[in-house]
């Protein structure tokens, strides 16, 4: 989890997921919230590592990004399930529904960003075998 990113809107998100009369609803929404932050942190790492692989011309680093990509996809799938279950069981409305939908859209984007990080890493590996570092050239 990335501290800065979490700190951006942490307290507001907190108030969004808490305060329900049924406390288990708070729990389900917070759990969803935490998992979104986790996938966010993971994707952020992937992007950092992919750019580091580029700047440092580091094949091992690029391979690491490619290896971790399935974990991002697994998170995405798990969050999809979690969101469906929450909607089916709790029928959220108004701000709760918006929070769930927003998280769902954020996760879809994060998954896509994760794909791009992997593509960067793959690209690095292919140009690295084909030639030399563009900056070094």
């Amino acid at each position: 989890m990335d501290g800065q990113w979490h700190g951006l809107n942490g307290s507001r998100l907190q108030s969004m997921v808490e305060g329900h009369t049924a406390r288990s609803f708070d729990g389900a929404l917070s759990s969803l919230h935490v998992h979104v932050i986790e996938i966010g942190g993971l994707v952020l790492d992937q992007v950092r590592e992919a750019s580091r692989a580029y700047t440092e011309w580091d094949a091992q680093c690029a391979e690491g990004v490619i290896e971790r990509e399935p974990a991002v996809n697994a998170y995405d799938a798990r969050l999809g399930e979690e969101q469906l279950t929450l909607i089916a069981r709790r029928q959220p409305v108004a701000s709760d529904l918006k929070a769930v939908i927003a998280m769902s859209r954020a996760v879809a984007e994060l998954e896509r960003i994760g794909d791009h990080a992997r593509n960067l890493a793959r690209h690095l590996l292919s140009i690295r075998t084909a030639g030399t570092h563009p900056a070094a050239g």
Binding site: H20, T21, A22, P92, V93, A94, S95
Partner: peptide
């Protein structure tokens, strides 16, 4: 908002 989202009652 609080009522329809189940936040009091």
């Amino acid at each position: 908002e609080d009522y329809i989202t189940g936040r009091f009652g």
